Amino acid sequence: MNFLIGLIFVSSILADQVTKALAVNILKDGSSIKIIGNFLRFTYAENRGAAFSILQNQRWFFITVTIVMLIVLAYIFFKTKNINKLSRLAIAMIAGGAIGNFIDRLMLGYVIDFIDVRFGSFYNFPIFNIADSFVVCGTILMIFLILFNKFEKSEDNG
């Protein structure tokens, strides 16, 4: 399982960076590619803020927060002996996604987003990327584990 966790961690970063490179090469000219009708399309966007484009142009703030968060996650992952493998997976997913966006912020000054989900004329979800997906899925998994008291190994199953 530790190999799988490491593979998911590395794959999350690689998948994020490769898909962003493709988005730049294919979509930066302003085109949008429909994948599933008007529901899902790929559209290039540069996000200089956080989720939902909040706190625009706060690059150094996000870089600092990401470094602190990665240090905390690394400490929990490597130094806490009583967390289970699913908890380690959640941490790896969050860290991998955070590093994917961190690379963009550090190298470009913004994060490349391209996954564009629309619910008809009712709602256009903010454009996001693979790294965001890993952070969100890892966070949901971690919340689930904490809420149901499964983040740490129980005494009876080691």
Rank of each mutant, 00 (worst) to 15 (best):
N47Y: 13
K85P: 08
L86G: 02
G6K: 03
N129L: 06
K85S: 11
F134H: 03
Q56C: 07
F144K: 01
A92H: 01
S11H: 01
F39H: 01
L73H: 10
G6D: 00
I99H: 12
G120I: 04
K28N: 14
I115H: 07
N47W: 09
A45N: 08
I115E: 06
F114A: 08
I140R: 00
S32A: 13
L27Q: 08
I8M: 09
F102C: 05
N82A: 08
R118N: 10
N82P: 01
L141E: 04
L70E: 15
D16R: 01
I94Q: 05
A92C: 07
A95I: 02
R59W: 06
L22D: 11
D113N: 08
N101V: 07
M107K: 10
F125S: 11
L14H: 02
S154L: 11
I76E: 14
N124C: 05
F62K: 12
D16W: 01
N149Y: 13
M107Y: 13
F3P: 01
R48I: 07
L4Q: 03
L14S: 00
F42G: 02
V72F: 15
L141W: 01
A21I: 04
A21S: 10
L108P: 05
I36W: 14
E46I: 03
L14V: 04
I112G: 01
G49S: 13
D156G: 11
A131Q: 12
D113L: 01
L86M: 13
D113S: 06
I99R: 12
L89C: 04
L55H: 00
T80Y: 02
I13P: 00
A90S: 15
G97F: 08
A15R: 01
F102N: 06
N157P: 12
F119N: 11
S133H: 06
S53F: 07
G6V: 00
F61Q: 08
I35G: 09
N47E: 09
G138N: 11
N157A: 15
G49E: 14
I67M: 15
L89V: 04
M107S: 14
V68Y: 14
E155A: 13
L141D: 02
L106T: 13
K150M: 15
F114L: 09
T66Y: 15
F62N: 11
Q56R: 04
V65E: 03
V65Q: 08
